[in-house]
Computed example of a mutant assay.
Amino acid sequence: MQQLRPFHQVCYDLGVRPTLFVDYPVANNEQAAQVIRELQQTGQYEIAAHLHPWCNPPYFGRPNERDSHVVNLPIEQVEIKLKNLVKILEEQFQVRPVSFRTGRWGIDGKVMQLLKQHGFSVDCSIYPFWENQFFDCHDAHLAPYWASLQNPLKVSAEKDMFEIPVSVGYNWRDFHRANRWHRRISSPRLSPLKPLALAWFTHWLRKLYLSPELTAAEDMRSLIDQMLENGMRVFHMYFHSSGLVDNPNSLVCNENAFHTISRALAELVRHLQSKADVRFLTASETATYWREANL
């Protein structure tokens, strides 16, 4: 959290307007909360809600893999956890959040309807081309859309909840075709042959994330170029604040993490600005722009 102070200068110089998805432990830590309040005073940040079930009170039994995903919890448990999260965000930052992200991704209709009931209007929990044993986002939309409250993967004519998927794709122009191939060569039966590694190192097929924790700047440039070719207008970068310190969980930031992410962000902003007219928006500002532009 302390690294957010110097990182603010990087964002300020570039004009970037971050959305801070804040979870309960961060909001409940006075030192961390003070950092966020300082950033908040600049008017450059949006404070959003980030629900990690295992560290957001109240607690129901011992944490486990299944219950670490919001979609697996009884909706009554999700609601009381959400209420506690919103309460502490209001107490610490004097703002009621309207944007939301689940911990560990994934969302379903019952959670989406709960968000609407509690005043949220923007969700950022969809992770395209990703699945686990609890949810599947392979058929998710890649561009922002007004989501159905019954099925968040579907578009709705009602403009109740705006979904902003994070930016994920491939080094092929046809992302969906690339994803079908990626799933085929990800088969456990083929794992002894290391087809994913072969596809990556030969540049035949690379799955790319607009996240400096997961993807090197060169590959993120490739993703941006492919997205532009596909006519996409919104680029949603994401990473954990812990990624700003040297972090063994980061694929590309094990050393010099702060400078790696800062340089990557600056490089990508310049690259995108060389190809398009760029406007920086927080999550809720994106929803407002989308509505006013009638997109």
Rank of each mutant, 00 (worst) to 15 (best):
D225E: 15
W200F: 13
T282C: 11
E218R: 13
E91V: 12
H118I: 07
A293S: 06
T102S: 15
P53Q: 10
I47F: 05
E79V: 00
P248F: 09
A276W: 00
K207M: 12
K83H: 07
T286Q: 02
E229H: 11
A283L: 10
V166E: 06
M112D: 02
P18V: 10
L114E: 08
S68L: 06
F239K: 01
D246H: 02
P57G: 07
F239S: 00
I164E: 04
A283M: 15
L51W: 07
N179A: 13
N56V: 07
N254A: 12
E267D: 15
R17P: 00
H69M: 10
S222W: 08
E131C: 03
F235D: 12
R279T: 14
A143L: 00
I107F: 04
L265Y: 12
L82P: 02
N254V: 05
Q31I: 13
L85Q: 03
Q3S: 14
I185A: 06
N256A: 06
S222C: 14
E292R: 14
A293G: 01
S241I: 03
W181N: 02
P165F: 11
W204L: 15
V278K: 00
S262C: 00
V71Q: 03
D123V: 06
N230I: 07
K154C: 13
N249L: 13
D136Q: 03
S121H: 11
S284N: 08
V252D: 01
C124M: 08
Q226C: 12
P97L: 08
V22P: 05
S191Q: 10
Y12T: 07
E38K: 03
W200H: 14
L228K: 09
G106Y: 02
R206F: 04
P212L: 04
A199D: 03
V122Q: 05
F258S: 00
I88N: 00
H118L: 15
N84W: 05
I107N: 01
L4A: 06
K110D: 11
F201I: 04
S156F: 11
G169R: 08
V35E: 01
P74Y: 05
P248L: 04
V166N: 09
L39G: 07
L228C: 11
R173C: 01
V10G: 06
F7W: 05
S99I: 05
R279E: 13
Q3F: 00
S121T: 15
Q150A: 14
G243T: 01
W181P: 02
G169C: 02
I224A: 05
P6R: 08
G15A: 02
Y127S: 13
V98S: 11
L281A: 09
S222Q: 14
F235A: 10
W204V: 12
D277I: 07
S68I: 04
W200S: 08
D246L: 06
C55F: 05
I185W: 13
L251R: 14
L82S: 01
A276Q: 10
